[in-house]
Write a protein that binds this DNA or RNA. Structure first.
Length: 288
DNA sequence: AAGCCTGTCAACCGCAAAGTG
DNA sequence: ACACTTTGCGGTTGACAGGCT
């Protein structure tokens, strides 16, 4: 499909998987577990490359994959998370149990991107109309502040088009935490000693106070999640709060209200001040 | 009925981070 | 510190299905 193979895979199967191949892969992983993808095909008796096996398992065969259409709730959540995180599909997928990054990416590209684009166009058009009206001398009762633009869709939450970050693809470690001792430089470069799997249990769910530097601006006081230490000597947004880490560190549960709450709180945080983007590109460089 | 067009989605790719020796 | 391998990510492609002309 598409491009030439990344390496010589003469004799290896490519393209769609057969039922037999699926069975072989599932049986092998059930018996031996995931990992060792490079050697897995040989051991499982598959004529596929390890990458292909991993992809098939991750995106299709895993038992916890949720099949079926994206629900309106999921749909909304994807739009809103994308407005915060950009194309970080794996991060978005983590907030949608049972959905894969590939699925969400495809769904976005085929369904949502156009819708959001249209909503932005519409909103732009109405804004321009408004400007034209103003130029005509039509009175406006109040000067609108720069608020997040949103448009309503029938029966769903309005689409938030506040900011669309276009981050580059970076891998976000599952247990990444920002510590006082870690500089932003190390955060960006990814040379992370920001925490280790061994130092924290994955399911530790606690309620934390936002550091004063953050809560002062955001108005938010608490979030539920794993520890994230902030350098309170610095003022937000220099303190080390970042969307990816925040969402990554916040456990996923079945409680959609909790997700809503988390989203709302982070939304508040980002909304804090548009000058953040203009005056502190450093903060945004964490996301872009 | 046949051909064209469009949308969807599984699978591929290259790249970069993380892991290992 | 370095080189090499493994893993994970996001972008892209092309097969396929269904609608349209």
């Amino acid at each position: 499909m598409g491009r030439a193979p990344c390496c010589s895979k003469v004799g290896l199967h490519r393209g769609s998987w057969t039922a037999r191949e699926d069975t072989l892969l599932v049986n092998y992983i059930q018996a031996h577990g995931e990992g060792q993808w490079r050697s897995l095909p040989k051991r499982a008796g598959l004529l596929r490359c390890g990458k292909s096996c991993r992809l098939r398992w991750m995106n299709y065969l895993r038992p916890d994959i949720k099949r079926g259409n994206i629900t309106p709730d999921e749909d909304d959540l994807i739009i809103r998370l994308h407005s915060l995180l950009g194309n970080r599909w794996s991060l978005i997928a983590k907030r949608l149990p049972g959905r894969t990054d590939n699925e969400i990416k495809n769904y976005w590209n085929s369904h949502l991107s156009k819708r959001v684009e249209n909503s932005e166009t519409n909103s732009k058009t109405s804004k321009e109309a408004s400007i034209r009206n103003n130029r005509k001398g039509k009175k406006t009762t109040e000067k609108k502040k720069d608020k997040p633009e949103s448009t309503a869709r029938e029966g769903t939450t309005p689409i938030v088009t506040t900011k669309v970050h276009q981050p580059k693809a970076i891998r976000v470690s599952k247990f990444s935490v920002i510590t006082r001792s870690n500089s932003f430089d190390s955060m960006i470069s990814g040379s992370s000693n920001w925490g280790s799997e061994g130092s924290r249990r994955a399911n530790d769910i606690q309620v934390f106070d936002f550091p004063a530097c953050c809560s002062g601006i955001a108005g938010a006081t608490k979030y539920i999640g794993k520890a994230m230490v902030c350098d309170e000597d610095q003022e937000f947004p220099y303190c080390g709060f970042d969307a990816a880490t925040f969402l990554d560190e916040t456990p996923v549960g079945d409680d959609t209200n909790m997700l809503e709450d988390i989203f709302e709180e982070y939304q508040q945080l980002l909304k804090g001040d548009d000058t953040v983007e203009k005056e502190t590109p450093f903060f945004y460089s964490l996301l872009i």
